[in-house]
Amino acid sequence: MRQFASLLFLFGFAFFLSVLVGGLPFGAAPMQVGQAIVEQNIEATGAANAVTGVLLAFRGMDTLGELTILFVAATAAGMVVERRKHGVSRDSVAGFILLAGAELMFPFLLILGAYVILHGHLTPGGGFQGGAILAAAFFVPFLANPGRAFQGHAMAFVEAFAGATFILLGIFSIFREGDFMAPMFLGTGEFGQLVSAGSLPLLYLALGLKVGAELGSLVAEIAAAPGSDDPLIEEPQAAKDL
């Protein structure tokens, strides 16, 4: 009965979706807002990458809200999951090839992540993608050797520092430009150079560090959770307060 009801719901939803999709225009010219942004992007932000301009200048508030969601999700995950003491992991250490490969990849992943973040206003890439690469640089060695201690405090510091920098840059631009999250220092630097597009590379650097720290700590939370057979060692804070 339950299966039948869910299948009926699915068919109804598929019909609804196909009617909806059938009426969508494809390949039309961008809407007015998109057209205006494409035309004004270089004068308004100085960034060659229009997506970066939209993310950090035209819709900077949305990105701030997105960071808030990321922060809340990471905090909630840390409250829900239980901790296991360091060094009591049942997960065995990976083989020699994986261990050596993880150690070898670490600096290259760091450089790649920094490159992708710092060139976010010129080429495809930026804080989100580079942040994910930075997170990978930190959790790949951790996955190869699960018993090693994860620098949770350093992660939390980087996350808090980067988030505060992002907001402080936005507040500073109120005094300088008159608007929250407005791009600053436009005109310093030549279009297409690394030092250009005003404060956008700084904002993207803060964003990338924050995203990397959040994603890395999410992976660490799940990796440090006790398995179904491990004895419980430490209650999470939320459960103690209840």
Binding site: N49, V51, T52, V116, P124, G125, G126, F128, Q129, A132, I133, A136, L215
Partner: peptide, 9 residues
């Protein structure tokens, strides 16, 4: 941009 994010994340 979206392709890079989708591949990495």
């Amino acid at each position: 941009d979206v392709a890079m994010a989708e591949a990495a994340v």
